[in-house]
């Protein structure tokens, strides 16, 4: 049975370092044009439903701002 995942990015923890973006094999992450309260452009998901749950982006995120959650 195929597992489904949700990419939860804590916008307020994100510092916009962009390290998560190139590691996603499916290119599901991109920089947002909006800023968080600290003035960082943050990372956000595109086509989030396609996430395979490889957690590379979460591993890469220095701030532990990305969580990959199992969606039942």
């Amino acid at each position: 049975m195929k597992k489904h995942f949700r990419v939860a990015i804590d916008r307020e923890r994100c510092k916009g370092c962009e390290l998560c973006i190139p590691v996603c094999p499916l290119h599901l992450l991109a920089m947002s044009t909006t800023m968080n309260r600290k003035g960082y452009h943050v990372s956000e998901t595109v086509r989030a439903a396609e996430c395979l749950g490889c957690i590379k982006c979460a591993r890469m995120c220095p701030e532990a701002a990305i969580e990959i959650l199992n969606v039942p």
Partner: peptide, 13 residues
């Protein structure tokens, strides 16, 4: 953690 278990922010942070 195995990839299929997702990733949670570490509890020790």
């Amino acid at each position: 953690k195995t990839p299929t278990s997702g990733y949670q922010r570490p509890a020790s942070l």
